[in-house]
């Protein structure tokens, strides 16, 4: 599982339209490559973390609240699950990081 963190605000602030277009094309090309090769198992991009709600245990009951608003950089933004070696997964992650300069996390999905 290759995970990307952060929200639009964090990633795209002060970026030029050309940079954004380039990033979008880069991501779409990579996504298509993973589909075409049959490595892609699942993938999703999540709605911006500013739209998230959190359910917390407060005063003995679960309470939903808006947010997180702080630490958006640590919020999951999207993921690919690919059927591949760790080496290949790291290579895919590296190709994104090379462009965005934002960190990606790679973890193995556990066997049942």
């Amino acid at each position: 599982m290759i995970m990307m963190f952060g929200g639009l605000g964090a990633a795209l602030e002060n970026r030029t339209p050309d940079w954004i277009t380039g990033m979008q094309e880069h991501m779409m090309k990579l996504d298509q490559e993973l589909r075409d090769s049959g490595e892609l198992v699942a993938s999703s991009k999540l709605v911006d973390p500013s739209q998230a709600k959190t359910v917390r245990f407060q005063n003995g009951a679960p309470v939903p609240t808006d947010g997180p608003f702080a630490e958006i950089k640590e919020s999951l933004a999207g993921y690919w699950i690919i059927d591949a070696t760790e080496e290949r997964a790291l290579e895919v992650a590296a190709r994104v990081v090379e462009y965005t300069e934002f960190p990606m996390e790679v973890r193995q999905v556990m066997h049942l």
């Binding site: 002060n14 030029t16 339209p17």
Partner: peptide, 27 residues
Amino acid sequence: YSRAARMTASLPEQRYLTLRAARILNG
């Protein structure tokens, strides 16, 4: 435009709105 981009759940719309925002603010 930035607020709208953060709120949409549609990827093409998000791309469109993000680009509109960047064109105005950083273009």
